[in-house]
Design a protein around this nucleic acid. Structure first.
Length: 663
DNA sequence: GAGCACTGC
C-alpha cells in the first residue's frame, strides 16, 4: 500500500461514522429496513456502502446508492473508487442519464433516483440489488418518494416469509434466496416518518462533523430585507476579521439590486478598509460568471457572494465564514384549480427551519462561522420544520404515467404523503387528453410509447404526433431544447439591446418554438464545421447558452434512439413548412392553449383564467387569434412562457374541442 | 414588460 492510499484509509477511520461502524453493520444485518439519521460531514454516504461490502452483508448482489442529483452520484462514485483503490467502473461505478461507468465487477453503484425508477420498468423487483440505499431522503423529491413507496412493495415480494408445507418442510420461494435490504439515509429530523412508513424500522443516529456556527437573530422584523442585508454586510465588513460572506436571497432581481447597493456604499468607505468584491450566483447566470465565485479572493479583499438557493445544497463555496440569511426563497408550486386548469406559481415566501439550518451550516465548513439571520428568533420558531414534499406541490402527470406502466395506480399506492386529490384528477385528465389513458383510466398503447421517452408526457405526445405530419426531425430539435435544465437564451439585464439584436436572426414570426428550431439548426451547422473555440465564440456572440445546446444535442440523440425503438422515422422532415411543426405541437400542448378575447386578452381553453404572453417571448406584441404555450407561471400575473401563434383552424381538430365528458 | 432549484431506459 502506498503512502497516499494509507493516508486515505487513515482519513476513513477518522470520520465520525467510523466509531459506530460495527453497531451499524450489525443493525443492517439484522433488519430489512434501517433508517440512518446522519448529520452532514458524518461520512455516511461514502462509508456505509463500503462497510456493507467489506463485511459481506451485501452478499453477491449489488449495492445501489441513490442520489437526487447527477453531480453527487458521479463525484461520490469517484471518491469511493479511490478509497477502494480501484479504478472507477470496476468495483465502484455510477449510472446517471447519458453516462454509465460500471462493469460486471461493479458491486457499489451510485445512481440518480430517476435512473433507478427507469430500471424498475424493466426489472420490477430490482433483483440485481441486494441492498438499496436511499440517500438524501429528507429532500423528499418526487422520485425519492416514488422509490420509497415502491421499495415497500418490493420488500414484501422479495422478503416474504418462508412457506411451510404440510410435511413441515421449509420451502423458500425462489426470491427468498435473494432478499433485499433497504437503508434510508436522512440528514434532518423527520426520521420518525420514514420509520413509521416501514412499520417501525429501526432508527440509527450518527453525529456529524461541523465547526460551530454562532447564530444571531434580529431584535425586530425587517420589512426590507435588501436594505437590512446591506447594513448587515457593512457591519461585518467594518467590524469583523477577514473571511468571505455569503448572502441568501430569493431571486435574481434582489441579487442585482443588493449588488448595486453594496457597490455604491463600498466605494464610499475610507481607504483603510478592505476592498469588496461581489459575485452573483444563480442558475440562469452564464457559466463564465458563475465560476468567478471559485476564484481565490484577492489580497486585502473581502468576497461577498449573493446567491439563491443554489448555494444551499447544489454548490459548496469554499472560504465562507459569514452567512447572511434573509429567510426568504422562491418556490415553484403546482396549483390544480377546479380540475379545468392548473398552473405553477413562483412566489417568494418564508423558508423552513431545516433550510435555515442548512444555510447557517454553510458558514461552518472550514472553521468557526457566524450566521446573521434577518428575522427574529420568534420568526424562526414560527417557520415550518420542513417544506412540503414535492409530491404535494408538483404536476403528477409524468409520475402517473410511469406508475401506470408498472401496473400501479397513483390513487391506490401507499405513499408517505398522499398526493392532492385535485392534482391527481388534473394528471388523469391530461393523460386522457393526450391519449395515454382511455375512458376507463387504462393505459393505451400510445401511453406505453409515451412512457418510453425520457420526456414529459405532453412533449412525448408531440413527438409521437410528428409522425402524422412528417416533421419528426424538426420536432426532436425543438423538444430536446424544451426538456433541457437550463434555458437557451441568456437573460442579460445589463446588455439587453445587444442580446435582442444578436438573436434577431433566429426569430420566427410564429413565436418561440420555431425560434428555438432556428437557433438549434444554426448551432448544428456551426458545430459540424467549426472548432470548439469558434463554437463557443459563436454562442457568446449570439447570447446563446452553449451548455443548453450541448445538452439538447445529447437529448436529441437519445430521443432518436428511442424513436428507432418504436419504429418512428426520425429523419422525416417537413423542411420549411412550419405548419406541420405547429400541428404536432398543438396536439401535445392542447391543454396549454388560449384564445384571443374581443378585448385582446387571452383566455385558457381548458379553464377560465386570463393569461398573458410572457414579455420574454419571441412572439412579442403580435395579436394572434390562438396561442399554445409550454407552461403557465403565476408571479405577478399568469404568464404563458414558450408561446407560439397557431392558426385557429388547427384547434378544431383537437380532441378537447370535439369530445365531451372529460372528467 | 420579466427569469427558485433539481432530474429521466
Amino acid at each position: 500500500m502506498n503512502v497516499k492510499q494509507a493516508n486515505l484509509q487513515e482519513q476513513r477511520k477518522q470520520l465520525p461514522i467510523a466509531k459506530g461502524k460495527d453497531a451499524i453493520i450489525q443493525e443492517i444485518r439484522d433488519n430489512d429496513v434501517t433508517v440512518l439519521l446522519g448529520e452532514t460531514g458524518s461520512g455516511k454516504t461514502t462509508q456505509i456502502p463500503q462497510y456493507l461490502l467489506e463485511s459481506g452483508v451485501s452478499g453477491s448482489g449489488m449495492i445501489a446508492v441513490t442520489q437526487p442529483r447527477r453531480v453527487a452520484a458521479t463525484s461520490l462514485a469517484g471518491r469511493v473508487a479511490l478509497e477502494q483503490n480501484t479504478s472507477l467502473g470496476d468495483l465502484v461505478g455510477y449510472s446517471v442519464r447519458f453516462d454509465e461507468v460500471s462493469s460486471a465487477d461493479t458491486k457499489i453503484k451510485y445512481v440518480t433516483d430517476g435512473m433507478l425508477i427507469r430500471e424498475l420498468l424493466s426489472d420490477r423487483l430490482l433483483s440485481r440489488y441486494s441492498v438499496i440505499i436511499v440517500d438524501e431522503a429528507h429532500e423528499r423529491t418526487l422520485r425519492t418518494d416514488l422509490l420509497i413507496s415502491k421499495l415497500k412493495t418490493i420488500l414484501k415480494a422479495r422478503n416474504a416469509p418462508v412457506h411451510v408445507d404440510r410435511k413441515g418442510k421449509g420451502r423458500a420461494s425462489a426470491l427468498k434466496a435473494n432478499p433485499l435490504k433497504v437503508v434510508i439515509m436522512s440528514a434532518t429530523l423527520d426520521a420518525e416518518k420514514f420509520s413509521k412508513f416501514y412499520d417501525g424500522a429501526k432508527i440509527l443516529y450518527v453525529k456529524g462533523r461541523q465547526h460551530p456556527v454562532q447564530i444571531f437573530h434580529t431584535a425586530s422584523g425587517q420589512s426590507d430585507y435588501v436594505d437590512a442585508a446591506t447594513r448587515t454586510f457593512f457591519q461585518i465588513h467594518v467590524d469583523q476579521p477577514p473571511g468571505d460572506v455569503l448572502i441568501f436571497l430569493p431571486g435574481q432581481e434582489d441579487i442585482e439590486s443588493l449588488d448595486k447597493s453594496i457597490q455604491v456604499y463600498a466605494a464610499r468607505l475610507p481607504a483603510e478598509h478592505m476592498a469588496v468584491l461581489t459575485c452573483q450566483m444563480f442558475a440562469a447566470l452564464p457559466p463564465g460568471q458563475q465560476s468567478r465565485i471559485f476564484n481565490p479572493t484577492p489580497a486585502n479583499t473581502r468576497k461577498c457572494i449573493l446567491a439563491t438557493n443554489i448555494a444551499e445544497t447544489s454548490i459548496t463555496i469554499p472560504g465562507i465564514k459569514y452567512v447572511i440569511d434573509t429567510g426568504k426563497s422562491k418556490e415553484k408550486r403546482f396549483v390544480a384549480r377546479d380540475v379545468g386548469s392548473g398552473f405553477d406559481t413562483l412566489l417568494t415566501g418564508d423558508i423552513t427551519k431545516s433550510s435555515a439550518m442548512q444555510r447557517a451550516g454553510r458558514a461552518g465548513r472550514e472553521g468557526k462561522g457566524y450566521c446573521f439571520r434577518l428575522y427574529t428568533e420568534d420568526a424562526f420558531q414560527a417557520m415550518s420544520a420542513t417544506s412540503d414534499p414535492e409530491i404535494r406541490r408538483c404536476s403528477l402527470t409524468s409520475a402517473f404515467l410511469q406508475l401506470k406502466c408498472l401496473g400501479e395506480d397513483l390513487e391506490e399506492l401507499d405513499f408517505m404523503d398522499k398526493p392532492d386529490a385535485d392534482a391527481v384528477q388534473f394528471a388523469l385528465k391530461i393523460l386522457f387528453l393526450l391519449g395515454a389513458l382511455d375512458t376507463k383510466k387504462s393505459l393505451t398503447s400510445i401511453g406505453r410509447h409515451m412512457a418510453s421517452f425520457p420526456l414529459e408526457p405532453p412533449l412525448a405526445c408531440v413527438v409521437l404526433t410528428s409522425k402524422e405530419h412528417g416533421c419528426t426531425l424538426e420536432i426532436l430539435d425543438i423538444v430536446s431544447v424544451l426538456s433541457c435544465t437550463s434555458k437557451l437564451f441568456f437573460d442579460v439585464s445589463d446588455d439587453r439591446d445587444n442580446a435582442l439584436e444578436a438573436r434577431r436572426k433566429f426569430r420566427h414570426s410564429s413565436g418561440d418554438h420555431m425560434t428555438i428550431l432556428n437557433a438549434m439548426r444554426a448551432y448544428q451547422e456551426i458545430a459540424s464545421v467549426e472548432s470548439k473555440g469558434a463554437r463557443r465564440d459563436w454562442c457568446r456572440k449570439h447570447y446563446l447558452n452553449e451548455r443548453t445546446l450541448m445538452e439538447a444535442t445529447k437529448i436529441r440523440d437519445q430521443l432518436r434512439v428511442a424513436c428507432e425503438r418504436i419504429g418512428l422515422d426520425w429523419k422525416a422532415s417537413c423542411g420549411e413548412n412550419e405548419v406541420a411543426v405547429l400541428k404536432s405541437l398543438c396536439r401535445g400542448l392542447v391543454h396549454n392553449s388560449a384564445l384571443k378575447q374581443p378585448d385582446g386578452s387571452y383566455m385558457q381553453t381548458t379553464g377560465r383564467s386570463l393569461v398573458k404572453i410572457h414579455p420574454g417571448s419571441a412572439l412579442g406584441d403580435r395579436k394572434a387569434d390562438a396561442i399554445i404555450y409550454d407552461e403557465l407561471v403565476f408571479t405577478t400575473q399568469i404568464f404563458a412562457r414558450g408561446v407560439s401563434a397557431v392558426p385557429k383552424a388547427l384547434f378544431a381538430a383537437l380532441p378537447i374541442f370535439n369530445r365531451r365528458g372529460i372528467s
